[in-house]
């Protein structure tokens, strides 16, 4: 009797989980299916899950509605630059904070950590004024510099570097290595695991970010992908199947990254909470 009851519970659990998975996946399926539909099929009832003949030309046509080639280029340049600067300066600072004992080190670390409490939403207006005074409105510099380094990155690398044995660095010093040499040749290569997690995080958050580009960019030539996508919603001549084709295309780089580096994504989950 006891055994049978457990089986029923198992079956119910299975049904619930499979149902939930389907429910979660429906928006993805719908996005993909709509992106391949003809205009007249989009709102057709009964529901058409699979388009009768896939309209692949929706992709080039949707992307041609606006300057999406340019937006792709801008997003890529910005995301790669921002990821590079974040990795470099975060590991430099993380190394200094973890392995050198200079005056005021702990105060500086706490100071940097405390900026984690300042979400960008809170300082968007003063940062806008700052970038305006620097003359960087509507420029790549204006787009990139305010996201060029994160306290989260410094914190992450510092926590990892602190576990590297000091004897390793001392051995290099005895061999005559300079301090920058130790950083580039010993500390940096050993930090690969944490740097790949940080790289994925930084790339994604830059690739996905809307708020700052929305504030700083006003000409079409500097728009990034999320900005281009969000402009769609005010275009009344954009049809849904084209919009979905563009949405799928814009998500591809991160989806590919997810498939290639799934391990780093899930590893990052446990620590990403710190980013808030």
């Amino acid at each position: 009797m006891r055994l049978r009851r457990f089986k029923i519970a198992d079956i119910l659990t299975g049904i619930f989980l499979i149902g939930l998975c389907l429910l979660i996946l429906i928006p993805f399926i719908w996005m993909l299916s709509t992106s391949l539909k003809e205009s007249v099929e989009v709102f057709r009832i009964p529901i058409q899950w699979i388009p009768r003949s896939p309209q692949w030309q929706n992709y080039p046509r949707g992307l041609a509605r606006r300057n999406f080639g340019r937006y792709f280029f801008n997003s890529t340049v910005v995301a790669i630059t921002v990821t590079t600067t974040t990795l470099f300066f975060a590991s430099l600072a993380g190394f200094g904070l973890a392995k050198y004992d200079f005056f005021g080190r702990n105060a500086i670390f706490i100071g940097i950590l405390s900026t984690l409490m300042i979400p960008f939403q809170v300082i968007m207006i003063p940062v806008f004024l700052l970038v305006r005074d620097l003359g960087w409105l509507d420029s790549y510099a204006g787009l990139m510099v305010p996201q060029a380094l994160t306290a989260f990155g410094v914190f992450l690398v510092r926590q990892y570097m602190i576990t590297l044995p000091d004897s390793l660095l001392d051995a290099a010093r005895i061999d005559g290595a300079s301090e920058p040499g130790i950083f580039f040749r010993i500390a940096l290569p050993l930090c690969k695991p944490v740097l790949s997690v940080l790289a994925i995080f930084t790339f994604r958050s830059s690739w996905d970010s809307l708020l700052w580009p929305l504030i700083v960019v006003s000409t079409d030539r500097l728009r990034t992908l999320p900005l281009g996508l969000s402009m769609f919603i005010t275009d009344y001549d954009i049809e849904e199947h084209w919009m979905m084709a563009v949405a799928v295309s814009a998500s591809l780089p991160v989806l590919i990254l997810f498939m290639l580096a799934q391990k780093h994504f899930t590893e990052g989950i446990a620590i990403s909470g710190m980013k808030g």
Binding site: A90, G96, K99, Y100, I108, G111, I112, E179
Partner: peptide
Amino acid sequence: RLWGFGFVLPAIIYF
């Protein structure tokens, strides 16, 4: 120690 501080300096200025 000066080197160590120098490594952190860009981050300090940035934040």
